[in-house]
């Protein structure tokens, strides 16, 4: 993925010719694929493979897990003779810690707290993911989003969400 939006980005480096060396990204990629294939394969072991006439639920997944493992292996092996080197770059820790929990929080609370408080808090959590966001700004934004969503989805479209849930005293 090109990280700079303005450059249409030829993916390969075009300055100095890097000697064949190992590509760390692909080592990790290959290993992760093999691990994933292993997990799927392990989950498949409990399933009935069946016969070619009456393929069982495990037939197709078993083939696919095998294929994924092979692909992972090839990527892993080839990674040691790679000519491209692209750094993994910065990792959005703060983003991950705050963005990903937002839908989870909404899921955990939408039935208990109700739609309105739940979407307010979820938006608040998500908005804290940016370093540029000031607390007051986040609060205002969340209030606006909440009012908008309540008006559109709950009142206008009549989606069957409870606006305030049973966990609240009123």
């Amino acid at each position: 993925m090109p990280t700079d939006p303005k450059i249409p980005a030829p993916p390969a480096a075009d300055q100095t010719p890097p000697p064949p060396r190992s590509d760390k990204t692909d080592i990790v990629a290959g290993l992760l694929l093999m691990l994933t294939a292993g997990l799927f394969g392990w989950q498949t072991t409990g399933l009935n493979i069946g016969t070619t006439l009456r393929m069982g639920p495990g037939y197709f997944p078993a083939i696919l897990s095998g294929l994924l493992f092979l692909l992972g292996l090839v990527i892993f092996v080839k990674s040691f003779r790679s000519t491209t080197e692209e750094p993994i770059g910065r990792i959005a820790w703060r983003g991950m810690l705050l963005i990903l929990p937002a839908p989870v929080f909404f899921g955990l609370t939408v039935r208990g707290l109700g739609f309105v408080p739940s979407i307010f808090l979820a938006t608040l959590i998500a908005s804290m993911a940016s370093m540029r966001m000031k607390p007051l700004m986040a609060l205002v934004l969340s209030v606006i989003v909440t009012i908008f969503s309540a008006l559109v989805f709950s009142y206008a479209l009549g989606l069957p969400f409870r606006r305030f849930g049973p966990w609240l005293p009123f």
């Binding site: 963005i99 937002a102 839908p103 989870v104 909404f106 899921g107 955990l108 939408v110 039935r111 979407i119 979820a122 938006t123 998500a126 908005s127 993911a129 940016s130 540029r132 966001m133 986040a138 934004l141 969340s142 989003v145 969503s149 989805f153 989606l159 069957p160």
Partner: peptide
């Protein structure tokens, strides 16, 4: 962008949940 993405997250959550009222879809 820091204003846009919290809105995106909120709409995503509502949109995904509205299809089948399934909270696991949010996870």
């Amino acid at each position: 962008y820091f204003i846009l993405f919290p809105i995106i997250m909120a709409m995503c959550a509502i949109g995904v949940y509205s299809v089948n009222s399934n909270i696991y879809d949010l996870y």
